[in-house]
Amino acid sequence: MTTVDATTRSPLVVACLRITDLHPEVDLLTGAVTRDGLGVGLSPADAAALEHALRIAEAWTGRVVVVAAGPRYIVPVLREVVALGAAVVRIPYGDDASDHGQAAELAGDEHGLARAVAAALIPFGTPDLVVCGDHSVDRGTGAMPAFLAHELGAAQALGLVALTAERAGQTSGPTLIAERRLDAGWRERLRVPIPAVCSVEGAGVRLRRAPLSGALAAGSAVIASAPATTTTTHGTDGGADSWADNQSGSVHIGATRAFEPRTRVRPAPDSADPRIRLLALTGALVAHDPPTVIGPVGAAEAADALIGFLVRHGYLDGPPTPPAPPTPPAPIDPGDR
């Protein structure tokens, strides 16, 4: 794991942004989506990610690199990012992916996109922090930051509402303090080690405006493109650990196959009435447990209730000592329907 040490190298904070047409036209009849590039911009989450990256880089006296995957029409937005003082690299993606010989069809391939982003960052060095919007640069699934953390061998903290830099202690390097929503209005506060990949919600911060001098200078800035390669060949960077070598905390994917549930043979419904047979096949006449609130209770009691439910419905074996089950509703009389 790397630590931020300003005496040996400048910390690198990366904002990985999803820049897309925020107002695409959707054909009401066919569902076809038309993008003309005029509505292109940052989503609130991505704007927040960029602002967090800028703030943390300021706190660490570090550099900011923005990486975004998208067609040529995202370039004006990247110029606005340049105006904020960040270095920028674009991965051709989508409409003009054919710009590069190694172009990959990255749409819908979060893992491939994460590899491409990691590869695009190699010239800049090893990132200490990557901040993404919680909709990420893929089709908005939010899965890409996790894949990127895997690629970089970094810790991950996703879906955050706050992210601040914590100063280095006497025995440890600087870390990050993050906040994430919990149910019932609670929040959990996390201390995130670096290197890390964090995704943030569009909340809590507002993206700063570029100064006029920055906006003027950005008008003639060259936006670098990185090949949309999915092969990462990371080297070391100023003593930093190699990403490829630093996989100890990563998820390793073994052999995988598609999930194929076994076919269950069910007896044919015993009725001459097709409607009754159909109702029986669909389970419409079977009483179901309604949602049950058993709390507030302690953790052990809640676990007992959950295990009891699973045992009652045949998902678990064993001698349960379930709490009194809730009164099931009366079976529905088909005649009432």
Binding site: L38, P76, R209, L212, A215, L216, G219
Partner: peptide
């Protein structure tokens, strides 16, 4: 929005600088 972008593009191609959101 298309026509004005096109005409502004003619100006920037000729060397004018465009600063937006200002």
């Amino acid at each position: 929005s298309h026509f004005d972008s096109w005409l502004a593009g003619q100006a920037t191609e000729a060397g004018a600088q465009l600063v937006t959101s200002t």
